[in-house]
Write a protein that binds this DNA or RNA. Structure first.
Lengths: 111, 111
DNA sequence: TTACGTTATACTTTTAAAAATATAACGTAA
DNA sequence: TTACGTTATATTTTTAAAAGTATAACGTAA
């Protein structure tokens, strides 16, 4: 009759105006853009299409009132994408929440 | 530069052997089965197909070592589905975790 | 002024999920 | 022994998501 051991898993994300704006996958994308300076490289690393990555970046930027990523085309290297200081702040905030969430999951799982 | 107010949302679920076995939607299904005594009625209430509901019940039952739902065909009313005491216990455990999770979300959202 | 590699965008194709459809199996009660 | 309403299962169709393809726009540097 006793409940056997189980693993509790889950996801958290940030919504603005009832729309999902930022979650685990998108934050990873932002981090990779920050590290590489390129949407394309970040997409390749995460094995998603450039289109999908660009759409996500676009959606993230539209969700907030100021951009998290600024991108330019042309120039040295063909173009560039940088994560703004505001973007870095949001990333940091989300990761802090996510860490607490992981703690929550391990506290409430198993049994 | 400050992060604007935002809503934190999310989901939690129970995994057994790296497989999702029970989450928010499935628990609601179980509750409706318990209330109606019928997989079909529960499915109708949740606007899903009987097939989908049955597949879910089947998957839930396979995940645990004892069934959460026992169903019979034929007889008075055409057939019946009941949630076992073990099933009720699991539902209750999940809902308790979920309540804590809701608390977590509202504590960490907004700002 | 040309080549380069990326951003930006549209369009098509593929794939996977969901829904819909059909039908057999079953046990009670009339 | 027939009708009923459900469980149980297979199959097909539809829908939506993802992936793939193509191409224009751009700014630097050779």
């Amino acid at each position: 009759m006793d409940i056997p051991p189980f693993k509790l898993n889950g996801r958290v994300w940030i919504e603005i105006g009832d729309e999902k704006v930022l979650g685990h996958g998108r934050v990873e994308l932002l981090e990779r853009i920050h590290a590489s300076g390129s949407i394309r490289q970040a997409a390749l690393q995460m094995k998603m299409s450039y289109k999908q990555a660009w759409d996500l970046v676009n959606h993230i930027n539209s969700g907030f009132k100021q951009p998290l990523v600024i991108s330019k085309r042309g120039g040295k290297g063909g173009g560039v994408a940088i994560v703004t200081p505001f973007g870095l702040e949001v990333i940091s905030e989300f990761k802090s929440i996510q860490q607490k969430f992981f703690d929550f999951l391990s506290e409430n799982g198993k049994k």
